[in-house]
Amino acid sequence: MISSIVLITGLLLILVGLWGLLTHRNILRIIIGFSLMGTGTHIVTVAIGYVRNGTAPIIDRALDLSEATSRVVDPIPSALVVTAIVIGMAVTAVMLAFAIRLYDSKKTLSIDAFTESKW
């Protein structure tokens, strides 16, 4: 149940990001759309790793080693998402750097001003 809510939230975030990507003309807003899409995919990935009544896969006083396999959530999506978050941040940094250079060249952030590479 709880993971369906998380899953639907993530899918909605992807849609919101895609919508922002396609409708806005300001480069900064497009970058925000990209980031929203990325965050949505992270949420979806974590949601599909949920196991009913599972807890965090960390063995400590609250979770004994013998019962670990029956009580934890899937650790693989979590490990993948740690990687994906860092890569998403890196991609955002590169996009912002390009946005700064584009602003320097045309003094505007509207994507309508950059028609040279339009086909």
Partner: peptide, 14 residues
């Protein structure tokens, strides 16, 4: 929702 861990995840947790 998953009811049990998949085999790969189970072997990792173990």
């Amino acid at each position: 929702e998953q009811q049990f861990l998949r085999p790969l995840a189970e072997s990792y947790v173990r």
